[in-house]
């Protein structure tokens, strides 16, 4: 996938995080990973469908989440309550939503799913045969990692898998 498409997500994430929490955001070095992702305390999953296809995984620790939410809501959040959970889900939603708007401006139409929140460290999340680009965003409140497992739709078939999917099992992608 082309770099500028990833950039839509990286820029959106940086801007949203910065403006919602009013702290400066620094981008750490990017990494491409093929192994399954191992969850941090909190993980937000949001799918992207359309001309760009895949999943955005946002991960952070409890401490970082609480600090971010406290800042966003301008009130001290001491436990990761339901309010904090929906706040983190919403943060992910706004980031991916803004990225989707940027992609539309570049001529790529996408829709995004509702967020799913995963709470618990050490589970494995596999995007199967899609590699992940890991983008660490560092703030004084902690690090938020954006994992982008996305690709461009190659054809109508890719973007519309409900056309009678057959039981074909993709071979694992072990290529170095």
């Amino acid at each position: 996938m082309r770099t500028e498409l990833f950039n839509a997500f990286i820029v959106a994430a940086g801007k949203v995080l910065g403006s919602e929490t009013d702290v400066s955001v620094q981008r750490g070095s990017l990494e491409l990973q093929r192994d399954a992702y191992v969850t941090d305390d909190i993980t937000v999953l949001i799918s992207v469908v359309g001309d760009i296809w895949g999943i955005v995984i946002i991960s952070l620790s409890f401490d970082t989440a609480k600090a971010l939410i406290s800042q966003m809501l301008d009130q001290e959040i001491s436990e990761f309550s339901e309010l904090a959970q929906s706040g983190i889900g919403e943060l992910g939603n706004v980031i991916v939503g803004q990225a989707s708007t940027r992609l539309a401006e570049a001529g790529y139409n996408t829709d995004i799913s509702v967020p799913t929140l995963i709470v618990g460290k050490g589970s494995t999340i596999s995007t199967l045969d899609i590699d992940r680009l890991v983008v660490p965003l560092e703030t004084k409140l902690g690090t938020v990692r954006i994992n982008l497992a996305l690709r461009q739709s190659q054809s109508e078939q890719v973007s519309r898998p409900r056309q009678v999917p057959s039981m074909q099992v993709a071979m694992p992608n072990n290529a170095p």
């Binding site: 959970q85 799913s113 509702v114 709470v119 618990g120 050490g122 999340i125 995007t127 199967l128 519309r160």
Partner: peptide, 27 residues
Amino acid sequence: AEAGYEAKISPPTLIIGKGTLISTLDF
């Protein structure tokens, strides 16, 4: 879709590990 509800579906994501909490938030 035949009933009038068109929707795209995302690629599958696999979560491995018992005991993790999965929340669909307000759904």
